[in-house]
């Protein structure tokens, strides 16, 4: 089996400030990796670097995606190659409707693969089917992207987009934060319904609770810009009980530079 995502000694900084200090992570098709860790440890930074946000500068290391240099690709190329980021803070885009964005997303990927645009009827069918999974009203399709959505609605909308786009590697950045228990199940169902042998997920979360519904194959602890501990799903339970205090966090930047 070929590794889907291979992150090796990844360093990244923002405005000259080092945030990721040597991340190593291997993700194979079919796997679900959970990433936990204290606030400010670099989880969102990692997610954004993978998606290609250019305000983060990669200073060292490499990321291979199906053997190719992910970091050489534009944001949209990564998306077309199957990478999807569910944002911790989804962005409001007044004037662009939700359904238009999803249609543009679906057709961008098809174009990338040399396929014709999806016929309108087929697209509508797809979207009606997917919107049921996330239990959203159809009116949300015609509203501007995330504009005036509640916190929970925004998160569901991320999952709706994911379900429609059907990515190969989905990175969920705290999609469970701020969700009530029903919404949490809906989000988990959204993920589980997409789980398959050729897809992988990186799920960033603070709560063990989500992992009751999305059972991960691996749990990693990110602290000080590095993965300081990895384990199976039981690690999340330990973290829930004991916090992060017991994990020894190596001094970062210097150690990594050595």
């Amino acid at each position: 089996m070929n590794t889907m995502l291979s992150i090796n000694n990844l360093h990244a900084s923002v405005q000259g400030k080092a945030i990721l200090n040597g991340i190593d992570l291997q993700v194979n098709p079919g796997e679900v990796h959970a990433i936990m860790g204290p606030n400010g440890s670099g989880k969102s930074t990692l997610a954004n670097v993978l998606a290609g946000r250019d305000s983060y500068e990669v200073t060292r290391g490499e990321v291979l995606y199906n053997g190719e240099n992910l970091l050489d690709w534009s944001v949209e190329q990564r998306a077309c190659e199957g990478i999807f980021l569910a944002f911790q803070y989804p962005v409001e885009i007044p004037g662009v409707s939700n359904i238009y964005l999803m249609k543009a997303a679906v057709n961008a990927r098809r174009k990338y693969r040399g396929m014709p645009e999806m016929p309108a009827v087929e697209f509508l069918k797809l979207i009606r089917e997917k919107i049921k999974v996330v239990d959203m009203k159809e009116e949300f399709l015609h509203r501007s992207v995330n504009e005036g959505f509640s916190g929970g609605e925004k998160k569901r909308n991320e999952i709706l987009q994911m379900a429609v786009i059907e990515p190969t590697l989905a990175i969920l950045d705290e999609t469970d934060s701020g969700l009530d228990i029903d919404a949490l199940k809906i989000v988990a169902d959204g993920v589980n319904s997409l789980r398959s042998e050729d897809r992988a997920f990186i799920v960033v979360t603070h709560y063990q609770r989500l992992l009751d519904y999305i059972v991960p194959d691996f749990v990693h602890v990110l602290a000080g810009g590095r993965i300081v501990k990895s384990g199976g799903k039981d690690l999340a339970l330990e973290l829930e009980k004991a916090g992060y205090g017991w994990i020894e966090i190596a001094p970062v930047a210097e150690a990594a530079d050595a």
Partner: peptide
């Protein structure tokens, strides 16, 4: 808005579009 640009592009929409 940079964040809006990134959001759209992260869905596969090319930069010009």
């Amino acid at each position: 808005d940079d964040s809006a640009m990134f959001y759209l592009r992260s869905r596969g929409v090319d930069e010009t579009t």
